[in-house]
Simulated assay, not measured.
Amino acid sequence: YSESLTLDQARRADVLVALRMQDKNLSHSHGGPVRLYVAPMYFYKSAKWLSGITVTENVRAGYWENRGYDIDAWVGRSNGRDDEPTS
């Protein structure tokens, strides 16, 4: 399984690599020990069980994008919204 974000997307304040939730280590069922959390995008961007991060020149389609999902995945965008995502 893989996911892609642009560098600008990954650097947003509401995108994080999560190790803890509610002051406890992130459980396996919640994607631990390490999970990517991408708040402004649909949850398929928030990859569970993160095993690495690779920086590339171009965004590469991930598992869900290869099955027709939106590569940017802003909440609401694929449902017809055209406003800017919250920052």
Rank of each mutant, 00 (worst) to 15 (best):
V59T: 10
G32T: 07
F43G: 13
V75Y: 03
G68A: 07
V34R: 05
S87H: 10
A73R: 06
V55K: 12
A61H: 06
T56C: 04
P85F: 08
V38A: 03
S78R: 13
S29F: 08
K24R: 15
L5S: 08
K48N: 03
D23M: 04
N58G: 02
G80E: 05
Y37H: 07
V38Q: 00
L5N: 08
D82E: 10
Y44M: 00
D14W: 08
A61G: 01
L16Y: 09
P85R: 06
Y63F: 15
G80W: 03
L50R: 03
S29Y: 05
E57T: 13
Q9I: 14
D8K: 15
R11W: 04
K48Y: 01
E84P: 07
H30L: 13
N25R: 11
V75R: 14
A39V: 03
H28M: 03
A18M: 13
A39P: 00
E3W: 06
W74E: 02
G31S: 05
T54A: 11
Y69G: 00
R20Y: 12
V17Q: 07
G52Y: 09
S29C: 01
E57H: 12
Y63H: 15
R35D: 01
K24L: 08
R60T: 14
S29K: 13
D82V: 11
T56S: 11
Y69A: 07
D70I: 12
Y42T: 04
W64H: 06
V38E: 00
T56F: 01
L36D: 02
M41N: 02
D8F: 14
L50D: 03
D72N: 15
T54Q: 14
S2L: 14
P85D: 07
S29E: 12
L5Q: 07
P33Y: 02
D23R: 10
R35Q: 01
R81A: 14
Y1K: 15
T6L: 09
S78C: 11
Y69E: 04
W49F: 03
V59D: 04
E65D: 04
R67N: 10
L36Y: 04
L16A: 12
E57P: 11
V34Q: 02
R60N: 12
A47F: 00
D72Y: 15
R12G: 09
T54D: 12
E65A: 04
R67T: 06
G52C: 11
S4D: 06
A39R: 10
R35W: 01
P40L: 11
V75H: 08
P40W: 09
Y42E: 07
R12Y: 08
D23I: 00
W64D: 02
F43L: 03
A39C: 02
N66T: 10
